[in-house]
Simulated scan of single mutants.
Amino acid sequence: MEFTSHELYHVYNRGNNQQPIFYERENYLFFIKKMRRHLTNCSEVLAYCLMPNHFHWLLFVNDTEDSNSRHPLNQKIGTLFSSYTQSINKRYDRTGSLFQQKTKSIHIDSKKQAITTFFYIHQNPIRAQLVGEMADWPYSSVPDYMGKRRGTLVNKECAYSLLDLDSDSVTNKSKKDLDF
Rank of each mutant, 00 (worst) to 15 (best):
K156Q: 03
T117Y: 08
E2C: 05
E157D: 12
Q101R: 12
T64W: 02
S169C: 11
N41E: 11
L58F: 12
Y23D: 01
L98Y: 08
A159G: 02
S167V: 12
I21Y: 01
L80P: 06
P52I: 11
Y145R: 08
Y92D: 06
I108R: 12
K104H: 07
G15P: 12
W57C: 07
H54V: 08
T4F: 15
T171E: 13
Y12M: 15
T116I: 02
D177T: 13
L39Y: 00
I126L: 07
L153Y: 10
P143L: 05
L162W: 05
L153T: 08
M134F: 05
N41H: 10
S83A: 04
T95P: 04
Q75C: 04
I115G: 03
S105D: 06
K104P: 03
K90M: 04
S141P: 09
Y160M: 01
R149L: 00
G132H: 06
D136P: 02
Y145N: 02
N155C: 13
E26H: 00
K173C: 10
F55W: 06
R94C: 13
H38Q: 04
S140E: 01
K33T: 15
R94S: 15
S105V: 04
Y9I: 09
D177L: 15
P143G: 00
N17G: 02
H122D: 01
E157W: 01
A128R: 08
A135D: 13
R70D: 15
I21D: 07
N41F: 05
D164R: 03
M134S: 14
L29G: 03
E65M: 12
L162Y: 10
H10I: 05
F3C: 04
K34R: 13
K33S: 15
Y139T: 01
N13V: 05
F60S: 14
T64C: 14
D166I: 11
R91G: 04
G96A: 06
L29T: 01
K90A: 13
